[in-house]
């Protein structure tokens, strides 16, 4: 009996008292709390913080990828980046891609969420499709659209040519390829906006609408005065998340066009990749990545400061 309970008692006692190292008091909550979050922090440090530090270091060196001998060059990589015409071009195109696809995703996504929320029959079919487009791998989306746009066997290609919108391979068209990439990525990523908004819509209590109905409000008035203010905070958050994700987007653009034709769809992530792995300038590629990261950090902080979405979401 005594043997049985003693270890439990001892652990309980340690558990309640905590201990101290020198002047630092460490309560048991501190000890166990930090211990439980330690694996996450370790992963985070290994995959996010160390690489960022490493990239800053590499961006100050000249590193040929095939023969990694580091030669310290100071800030000259950054000077070179800012002098590259293709850097400013890619920044502009990245901005176009980010703003264009965020606006389309926001419009379609919120529309879709409102429709699913109001549907009484058949909403399961639509929401299954929405979840599918969210969960499906990007490469599958690319394959589907490349097939549908194929100049020989593609159904969208045939339709577009018949209607006189484009000729030849759509993604090979210098002036239309950016628009096409924006639309295809919106097909994939609007679902995120929908699900985010739908989750917020479903958490609005029904009694608000019942009360409004009793006092004779129309559907439009209910939308304007109950729904819109309630989802506004979520929309501010989702604009922020989508803009960040689209600015960082590499995979779908690379799969569809590899930044081409020419440099018509070369955004900043694409430029960072090609400078690193195609031009073998590892230091320069890292400098592009760091510039991208800083640009995002500054605009993110500004957005959070002026739009302040976190306060809106509290409601």
């Amino acid at each position: 009996m005594a043997i049985d309970t003693e270890p439990v008692d001892r652990s309980r006692r340690f558990f309640e008292d905590g201990f101290s190292i020198g002047r630092f008091e460490i309560t048991s909550d501190d000890f166990w709390g930090w211990l439980t979050i330690l694996p996450v922090l370790a992963l985070y440090t290994l995959i996010a913080l160390i690489p960022i530090g490493f990239a800053i270091l590499a961006s100050l060196h000249n590193v040929p990828l095939l023969n990694p001998e580091w030669e310290f060059v100071g800030l000259s990589n950054y000077v070179e980046v800012f002098q590259l015409d293709r850097f400013w071009g890619s920044m502009w195109r990245g901005g176009v891609f980010m703003v264009g696809s965020t606006i389309i995703q926001l419009a379609v996504g919120v529309w879709m969420a409102l429709v699913i929320n109001k549907l009484t029959r058949g909403s399961r079919l639509l929401s299954t499709l929405v979840f599918t487009s969210y969960l499906i791998p990007t490469i599958i989306v690319t394959m589907m659209f490349l097939f549908m746009l194929d100049p020989y066997d593609g159904v969208l290609h045939a339709a577009g040519v018949r209607l006189g919108i484009w000729e030849g391979f759509l993604l090979g068209n210098t002036s239309l390829s950016m628009g096409a990439v924006i639309l295809i990525s919106s097909w994939k990523f609007s679902a995120f906006v929908t699900l985010f908004t739908l989750a917020q819509l479903q958490s609005i209590p029904d009694r608000f609408y019942e009360a409004a109905k009793v006092s004779g409000a129309t559907t439009w008035e209910m939308f304007r005065d109950i729904t819109l203010p309630r989802i506004f905070g979520a929309i501010l958050v989702v604009i922020f998340l989508r803009a960040v994700f689209m600015f960082n987007k590499y995979d779908i653009i690379w799969q569809l066009t590899q930044g081409g034709p020419g440099s018509a769809t070369t955004t900043m992530p694409i430029l960072a990749y090609t400078e690193t792995f195609d031009a073998n300038a590892y230091g320069l590629g890292n400098a592009v990545a760091i510039v991208m990261f800083l640009f995002l950090l500054v605009s993110g902080i500004l957005y959070l400061k002026y739009a302040n979405p976190s306060q809106e979401v509290q409601t």
Partner: peptide
């Protein structure tokens, strides 16, 4: 602080991770 991880682009992390 963990949520800041959303800000890191996969490409920004993958390029340094390649040599690491």
């Amino acid at each position: 602080f963990l949520l800041l991880g959303y800000m890191f682009s996969p490409i920004v992390l993958a390029i340094p991770l390649y040599l690491i």
